[in-house]
Design a protein around this nucleic acid. Sequence first.
DNA 1: TATTGTTATACTCTATAACTATA
DNA 2: TATAGTTATAGAGTATAACAATA
Lengths: 138, 138
Amino acid sequence: MMGLMNPAWQLLNDLLMAQRARMPAIAAEFELSPVQAQVLRLLEPERPMPMGRLACGLGCDASNVTGIVDRLEARGLIERRPAPADRRVRVLVITPAGRRVRTTMLARLAEPPVEITRLSREDQELLAGILARMAAAD
Amino acid sequence: MMGLMNPAWQLLNDLLMAQRARMPAIAAEFELSPVQAQVLRLLEPERPMPMGRLACGLGCDASNVTGIVDRLEARGLIERRPAPADRRVRVLVITPAGRRVRTTMLARLAEPPVEITRLSREDQELLAGILARMAAAD
DNA sequence: TATTGTTATACTCTATAACTATA
DNA sequence: TATAGTTATAGAGTATAACAATA
C-alpha cells in the first residue's frame, strides 16, 4: 500500500524526474548520445580503463561496449590500446580531441540550473551541508 | 573556464548521476522498458491523453509513440480510443491491468532510498523545506 | 577451464520524411 | 492548408548466445 510518502523523497524524486532530460540535452549539444557522453565522463585522462570495466560503469553487457567504443573511436575521441600485462584486455584512452570535448562538456554539466541559483545563499549552504552528509554516509 | 563549482549543485549533480539507474531498474522489475514505465506514470487513470500529448510528455517525436503504444496495448496495459470531438485524434486510456501495474510501480518509486532514510529527522525536514522552495519558484 | 572481447541475432527507442484521414 | 497519427527507413542501445584468443 502507499499511504504517506516521505516528503523529502517525494520532492527530491520530482526534481530527479524533472532533471531527467538534462544529461541527454547536454550530450546532444556535442552531438553525442547519452551513453557516449557517459563514456567520456567516465574515461578520465591519465586513467585508461579496460573495456570490461567500462561495461560495469555503464551498467550494460560487455557485448554492447564493442559498438559504443567503435563509434567513439571512429570519431577520434577515444582509442583502444593493447594491455601489456594481459593480452586479452583492451585498454581505452581518451585522445586529445576527446579530452577537449570532455572538458567543455563537464563545464556545461557544472553550470548550476536556475533552480539552484534562485535559492538564497543560506538555502544553498544548507542544501550543500545536507547532501554532503548524505554522501558521507557511504 | 571552469574554476569554482557551486557546491550545492556539485553534490546534487553527483546524486542525480548516482540515481540515474533507479528508474530503469524499477521499470525492469515490471518487465517494462524505461519509456514504457514513463508512459504508465504519465497516464493517470480517469485522465485519458491524446497520443500527441504523450509525445510531448515523453519529449520524443510523435512517430515513435505509435510503436510504444502498440507494445503496451499488445500487453493489455493501455488502450487506444477514438476521440468523439476530433476523429483524427486517438485518446489513450489505462486498462484495469495497467492500473494495477501502475499502482505497484508508483509505490516502488515512492520508497525512499537509504540515502534519504539515513538522514536525521532534522535534515529530512530541512531538505524538504529547501526543495519545496525550489519547486515553488516556478 | 575461465575470462576478455567480439560477432550474430533480435528487439526497442530514436529521428526524418512521406503518407492518410481528417479538420 | 494544416494537423493527428501512421508507415518506411535508418541508426543506436540493449540483451543473449556462441565464438576466438588468451590466461
